[in-house]
Amino acid sequence: MKSIIKNKVADKFREIKEKGGTALIPFIMAGDPEMAATFTILPYLEKGGANLIELGIPFSDPLADGPVIQEAAQRALANGFRLQIFLRLLAKNRRLVSIPIVLLVYYNLIYQYGTERFLAEAAEAGVDGLVIPDLPPEEASGLQLPTEKNGIALNMLVAPTSSPGRIKAAAALTTGFIYLVSVRGVTGERPTLPPDLPELAGRVKKLTGHPVAVGFGISQPAQARQISSFADGVIVGSALVRKLAANAGSSPVAAGEAGAAFLRSLHEAMAGAAQENRENGLVEPFPW
């Protein structure tokens, strides 16, 4: 029997699962279009039904991202985004939302910050988890990131190309959720999801024993609903970032409201799926 991992990310997944639901995890780019806007937008995400928030840290060379998120990072950097300042602002404003915040950070930014110092300051700022898109298990195991000491959940990525051995290696490092990349490709909206995704998610759940959240390509309520029938979390990035950017011209408040409305549409679709699952007796026991 494996011991139960305690941190805010793992706790949140447990809490949602107990209610028979699926976590809705919106992604936004920190500092897009500028740092203050992020703190206006964050509470709207919680109001719109978010259970966790994935906050992207802008990087000049985001290898795993499609055009929408690349451009968001460029906007933030062009407007003077600084990670050190952002973490301080986050510490001051963290109480604006009560749900867990997971940072998506490319590894070079952590490396330059100094790993120990980064984790300490992130924890201080109220960061609950990390996703590092260019740090596969080979490199992550060598580093032995002291995330647990700081109460930060490490969430490893698994892709459709990951072998069972790789999936287990990712699981061994994960203390929050497994980020399941739904497609071969970069982030960005897709009209349809791969037909073998439910089977893949099932396999990953079985091999890892961690909650599995699906990301990359999800933009519509129907897709969110579909995913919530077989996964523990739905991550929505590009579609939301695009909606925020389209409304940012008027004001951060308008962007936040548009974002919240979009999340509500996803949340409702997912709630419908959860309801059906309960009626059909499909709520499965969970190991974590």
Partner: peptide
């Protein structure tokens, strides 16, 4: 379950890429 890192020249090199 750990995977060994490979392709290092001293401290440099490695494989810092998306899991895919």
């Amino acid at each position: 379950n750990a995977l060994a890192r490979r392709g290092y020249y001293g401290a440099y090199g490695g494989q810092y890429v998306p899991e895919t």
